[in-house]
Amino acid sequence: MRALVSARLGADFTRLWTASAVSNVGDGVTLAAGPLLVASLTSDPALVAGAALAQQLPWLLVAPLSGVYVDRLDRRRLVVVVNVLRGAALAVLAAAVAASAVSVPLVYAVFFLLGVGETLADTAFGALLPATVEPERLPAANSRLTATAILGNQIAAKPLGGWLFALGAALPFAFDAVTFLVAAALTSAVRVAPAGRPAEAGGRSLRREVAAGVRWLWRHRLLRTLAASMAVSNVAFCAPFAVFALYAQQRLHLTEVGYGVLLTAYGVGGLVGTALASRLQARLGARTLLRAGLVLETATHAVLAATTHPLVAGGILIAFGVHSVIWGVIVATLFQRSVPDELRGRVGSVYQLTQIGGAALGSLLGGLIAQAVAITTPFWAAALAMTVITAVAWRPLAAA
C-alpha cells in the first residue's frame, strides 16, 4: 500500500504521512493516560480536568507567535527539533513516574510544554505539506492524513493508552516519547527546499508579522467566512457535547458502554468521510459540499435535541462524522492552495486560534446552559446558532 501511495503522492508525502500516523498514536496514548495519571495523584475533579486545559492553553496564548516562527524558519527542521524536544519532555515525565517522583505541577508543566510544541509543529506541518504534493493531489493527501489521525488518535490509541497505564504508569509516556523521536527521524528525511525567511524577517517586529497574518485572512472573503463559520460552529458543537455524557444517560438512557459505542459512531462516520472526501469534491464541488455541511450540522443538533432513541442519535452522529471530515479536508485544501507560502504559518495559526477559542467558549457555555435550563437546551441553542450561520455564510460560500 505504501508503494502505491508513494507512486501517486510521492515518497516525501509518504514520510510525512507515516510520521503523522506514528505521532497521532503517541498523542492519543498520552491523552488517554494523562487523566489516569493525575487521577492517581489527586481525587479533585478540577485538578484532573486541568491536565487537558494545560495542553490546550498554549493555543490561546502563543498560537499567533508560533505562526510567525513557522514562517521565519525552515519548517521541516522546526518540526524535527520540536518533536525531539517533546520526546525529551515526555521522557522526563516517564522517568519521574517510574521513580515515584511525579507531581501534579510536573504533569501540568510537561503538558503545557507539549501544547506549546503542538502550536509550532502542527502549524509547520500544515504549511510544509503543500511542498510535498502536487496541488491537484492535496484533497487526497488531506484525506489520508485525516484517516490515519482518526484511526491512530481516536480509535486505536485510547484503549492502548489505558492498557499501557495498567501495565505500568510510566509506559504510556515512554511510548509517546519514542513515537516523537520516530516522527522526527521520518520528517528529517523529507526532501523539500527550506521555506523560512530569516534574513527578510529579522528586522520586523512580531506584532507586525502577526498583524500581517490577521490582515490577510480578514481580507480574503471566502477564508474569512470559513474561519468565522467554524469558530461559531465550534461554540455550537462544544456547548452540547460538553454535557454529552449526561445527555446519553438522562435522555437516551444509555450505560457507560452504550455511551462509548455512541462516540465510536462519530469515528466511524469520520472514516467513511475520508474515503469519500476527494471523490465527492471532484464530483460535486466545494461550494455544494460546504453548504450541505452547514445544513447537516444544523440538522444534527436539532435531531439530537428532539430524539430519545439511541439508534437515531447514532445514525445522525455517523452522518455528522462524514460531514466533519469532508468539511475539514475541503477547508485544509482551500487554505493550502490560497494562502501564499510565506504567510501559511501566520494565517494557519490565526485560523486555529479562532477554532480553539470557539471550542473553549462552547465547552464553558454548555455546562452553564444545561445547568440553568435542561440537558437538551444546548442542542436547541446550537441548532439555532447554526441556522443563523448557514443563512449568513450561504452567499459568501459561492466563491468556493
Rank of each mutant, 00 (worst) to 15 (best):
M230C: 11
A231P: 04
A231F: 05
V232K: 00
V232T: 04
S233G: 15
S233F: 14
S233C: 13
S233R: 08
N234D: 04
A236Y: 02
F237R: 10
C238Y: 13
A239R: 05
F241K: 00
A242I: 07
V243N: 07
V243L: 12
F244A: 09
F244G: 00
A245Y: 11
A245E: 10
L246S: 12
L246D: 11
A248Q: 06
Q249M: 12
Q249W: 11
Q249N: 13
Q249R: 15
Q249D: 15
Q250P: 04
Q250L: 14
Q250C: 10
Q250A: 14
Q250E: 15
R251G: 05
R251H: 11
R251E: 14
L252C: 10
H253R: 14
L254S: 00
E256G: 12
V257H: 13
G258E: 06
G258N: 07
G258F: 08
Y259A: 10
L262V: 04
L263W: 11
L263H: 08
A265R: 01
Y266H: 09
Y266E: 03
Y266R: 03
G269F: 03
G269R: 06
G269A: 09
G270K: 00
L271R: 01
L271Y: 02
L271Q: 06
V272Y: 04
T274E: 06
A277I: 08
A277T: 08
A277Q: 03
A277G: 09
S278A: 15
S278K: 09
R279V: 14
R279W: 13
R279F: 12
L280S: 01
Q281R: 15
A282N: 13
A282I: 12
R283D: 09
R283H: 12
R283C: 10
L284Q: 12
G285A: 07
G285C: 06
T288F: 11
L289G: 04
L290P: 00
R291I: 06
R291W: 08
R291N: 07
A292Y: 05
A292E: 07
A292W: 10
A292Q: 08
L294Y: 08
L294T: 01
L294S: 00
V295S: 04
V295I: 11
A299G: 07
T300D: 11
H301E: 11
A302M: 10
A302C: 11
V303I: 13
L304P: 02
A306P: 07
A306K: 06
A306N: 10
